[in-house]
Amino acid sequence: MTSDQIWQPLVEELARWQRADRKAEFWLRDDDAVDPTPALDRLLDLTREFAVAPTLAVIPALTDEKLVVRLDEAPHVTVAIHGWAHRNHAPEGQKKQELGAHRPREAVLDDLARGLSRVSGLHGARAVPMLVPPWNRIDPGLVAELGSIGFAAMSVFGPPKPASVAVVNSNVDIMDWHGTRGCRDHGLLVQAIVAQLQHAFDGGEPVGLLTHHLVHDESAWLFLERLFTVAAQSEACAWLPIRALIGRSAGTANPGKM
């Protein structure tokens, strides 16, 4: 199958949105940013070229002013809070979690408050008070407390559930974590994006693309470049900044529920 054939389903789906005079909405979350790296440079350059506004989930305990200086040159970027240290506290044999029920709730909340303070202090207006739990996992009992320590939003992976803060989830992960640990098959990714767009057409959530710049192989970079290119060629496609999505989702937040 040629590259054009792989991408044709997305071209056709975007054409459907254009015929309906509607905008197919996308956003991009990239996890695990800490320091300036060649991979980060590549992500920032690529997203700037195509006017995509990525949200970097930054690990507070591991980052410092070096990232601030680099992002000062990338005004199209926002940063969110990726837990505290991205450290697993789950026992061996259980799924990895930093924000699980394996420690006292007060200790976890203290870490999160410290993380929000650190990232906000470093990045100022570039920071959004959104929690991105490491490994996309968080104890449901903690979610109701997030607003009390300053968070306005949360982002994990999968369909959103009602919560006391705005929920803006990613729903298409480009990495094959359980197989090659490189980029997923491009055809399967296109199918996943088209399925999410079809869901969005009927009132579902925008396409939330999840990337991890530090572990991208060449196939991942190629996929992103081609996706951005196809999207740019359609008048029906819009890449949204995270603040717009948080503002929209805040109206549906449900205090006390997860």
Rank of each mutant, 00 (worst) to 15 (best):
K66Y: 09
A53R: 13
D35Y: 12
H76M: 11
L44Y: 02
L28I: 08
P75K: 07
P54N: 11
L62T: 11
R42D: 04
A85N: 13
A90Y: 00
L28V: 10
V58P: 03
L40C: 07
P38T: 10
G83S: 05
L28K: 06
R87A: 13
V34R: 15
E65S: 13
A74C: 09
T78Y: 02
I81Y: 07
D32R: 13
T63D: 08
A53G: 09
T47A: 02
A74H: 02
F50W: 15
N88V: 03
V68I: 01
V34E: 14
V34P: 08
E25N: 14
E65V: 10
V34C: 13
P38G: 05
R87D: 05
L67V: 09
A24V: 02
T55F: 06
K23S: 12
L67A: 05
T47Y: 01
A61P: 01
A24Q: 03
I81S: 06
A51P: 00
R70M: 07
A90M: 04
I59P: 03
W27N: 11
R22N: 00
H89Q: 08
V34S: 09
R48I: 05
R29S: 11
E49H: 13
I81L: 07
T55L: 15
P36Y: 06
T47M: 04
T37R: 12
A61T: 04
D30G: 09
I59N: 06
R48P: 00
F26C: 11
A51W: 00
K23M: 11
A80T: 06
H86D: 09
D72Y: 00
D35W: 15
H89D: 08
